[in-house]
Design a protein around this nucleic acid. Structure first.
Lengths: 118, 118
DNA sequence: CGCAGACATCGACGAGCGTCAATATCGACA
DNA sequence: TGTCGATATTGACGCTCGTCGATGTCTGCG
């Protein structure tokens, strides 16, 4: 589904007029959906493992052992991350290769700084 | 309890050697605790409302109406945010004034960029 | 074709979360 | 002292989440 986080980021990320108006309810909902996908230690480790892997991509078999969970559980977490727009899935032959979406984390960080700073 | 997020941030936030090694399990746990506090639309709105309020602080009575929830529920969410180290509580007389912790959100954003970028 | 392996889906279970009404606590003020 | 008002705490409810074992689906290979 890839929640878009289309919150209007000000022209420049640095030194915006700080918090002018509070976040709207729909924007808060969208941000919360993305953060909920991130707010799990296993998913953070999976994201990190994929990012640190050779070529920036990894298949499920590379990730099952490091996190110490069953294969269905790892597949479930990866699906959550893909649905949140944080990971991409590329099935080549028998293997499914996951890679981090380039700007996704930056967007989250930018919204946090822009909308909630003081 | 104020989870510290003491993950060692590289010397400069910009252009670090990207993801060298995956996040450790304890670090992932600490980050997840903070993100879990953020991953709720009501708490995001409360954080935003406090940040946007005059003087950077607000009491419970200022926040109950905008979010449309009961007073105990708002108090509960504020306690979660304080326990996560994202808000401070200052009780003056009958009122309790909440304010955003200056660097907290920046830390979260920095860890996201540093540990999970590619 | 038939088998083996990689991954996804399903169903179920226990734990945790968000919300509320009811109640408790505490400070201000008459 | 006694009452009022602002906030915190408690107990309960329904719902969501993380995890697993079992099973389904699809690909490559003999």
């Amino acid at each position: 589904m890839a929640t878009a986080l289309h919150t209007t980021v000000e022209a420049q990320a640095c030194c915006a007029p700080l918090v002018a108006a509070p976040i709207s309810a729909p924007d808060a909902d969208a941000l919360a959906r993305t953060l909920k996908a991130l707010a799990d230690p296993t998913r953070l480790r999976l994201l990190s493992l994929v990012a640190a892997h050779d070529g920036g991509e990894a298949c499920v078999c590379d990730l099952t052992d490091p996190v110490g969970l069953s294969q269905p559980t790892v597949s479930h977490h990866l699906k959550v991350l893909v649905d949140a727009g944080l990971l991409t899935r590329d099935k080549r032959g028998v293997w499914a290769y996951y890679a981090v979406v380039p700007g996704a984390l930056d967007s989250v960080a930018a919204v946090l700084d822009t909308q909630l700073r003081r």
